[in-house]
Nucleic acid binder design. Structure first.
Length: 285
DNA sequence: TATCAGGACCAGT
DNA sequence: ACTGGTCCTGAT
């Protein structure tokens, strides 16, 4: 990946495998919002970032060399060569999905933010999840200024644990409020999310599911989107429909995972993201 | 002990 | 009336 630094920006040259819309509007991330001019504005790692595509180049700003190498390179999973992914897999649906979804990348987000966001995602839709997460950040996330505007970092576990159930409910969390309060408190009290990185997939998933509001689907999302487990395969109602329609496979979460692991290998979770595109293009969902 | 099915559940569109 | 699931309960 060719990167140049200029005027406080990092510019990725000829970034065919980086398409902001496919990255930010696919449901993995809730804090980057499309602006009227097509750029995406968001907050991660306690800082503001503007992401926009200019022709074949991608611009990240503000972004110094240190910020790129220390934060965004990892956040956007730029160490992985997506062009080579599944190239020889021979699976028609997946290759079609790759084509339609080119430029999609699986982010490496912050584990606590991902955990809380996906507890909120249960029985919910993208627009509403964004609203709830935004209100939570405004309620107790650290404020900071950028270009004359105020933004909020995602709350630390300690800060989020100061919200009571009514506080969560006031942000629109509904019946999830007690789950969120309990989970925030558990993490604030020492539940070590980072430690899960070094555990094998199955063990890490079991640990996550001890937290309130975390079932198999939410656990897989946290593992895939924030803990580097590319084989985690979130089995939601949509992907189950895809599995049935494309592969004639039906089963419970565990069976879907086993099938996906066998079929798509160690990057099954990334394959899952592309399969959505195939399904969408073919009006299967 | 493990697995499974069924109902309840906020709130915005 | 619908929603990118989870919790709880009771049954096998």
């Amino acid at each position: 990946m060719d990167v140049i630094y200029k005027d406080g920006r990092a510019i990725l040259r000829e970034a065919a495998e980086f398409e902001p819309a496919h990255i930010f509007d696919n449901g993995q991330c809730f804090r980057f919002i499309r602006q009227a001019d097509g750029a995406y504005h968001g907050v991660a790692h306690g800082r503001f970032l503007c992401v926009e595509k200019n022709g074949a180049d991608v611009s990240l700003s503000p972004c110094s060399r240190d910020e790129f190498e220390g934060i965004w390179n990892g956040y956007f999973d730029l160490g992985r060569d997506y062009a080579k992914l599944f190239a020889g897999c021979g699976d028609r649906a997946l290759l079609e999905g790759r084509k339609y979804g080119q430029g999609l990348r699986v982010l490496n987000q912050e584990p606590f933010e991902t955990l809380i966001s996906f507890i909120i995602s249960a029985n919910n839709n993208l627009g509403r999840i964004r609203g709830i997460v935004d209100r939570i950040c405004k309620a107790c996330g650290e404020p900071f200024e950028y270009a004359g505007r105020t933004y909020h970092a995602f709350p630390t576990p300690g800060r989020l644990a100061t919200l009571d159930v009514d506080g969560f409910a006031g942000c629109g969390c509904g019946y999830r409020s007690p789950y969120l309060r309990e989970t925030a408190r558990q993490v604030a009290d020492g539940f070590d999310l980072e430690a899960l990185r070094s555990l094998p997939y199955g063990e890490a998933k079991k640990q996550l599911m001890r937290l309130k509001g975390v079932g198999p689907k939410v656990a897989d999302c946290v593992l895939l989107f924030s803990l580097g487990k590319a084989d985690a395969f979130p089995a939601d109602v949509w992907i189950k429909r895809v599995m049935k329609n494309l592969y004639g496979f039906e089963g419970n979460d565990r069976q879907v995972y086993a099938f996906a692991k066998k079929k798509f290998g160690k990057n099954a979770g990334i394959a899952q993201q592309y399969l959505f595109y195939y399904a969408r293009e073919n009006k299967l969902v």
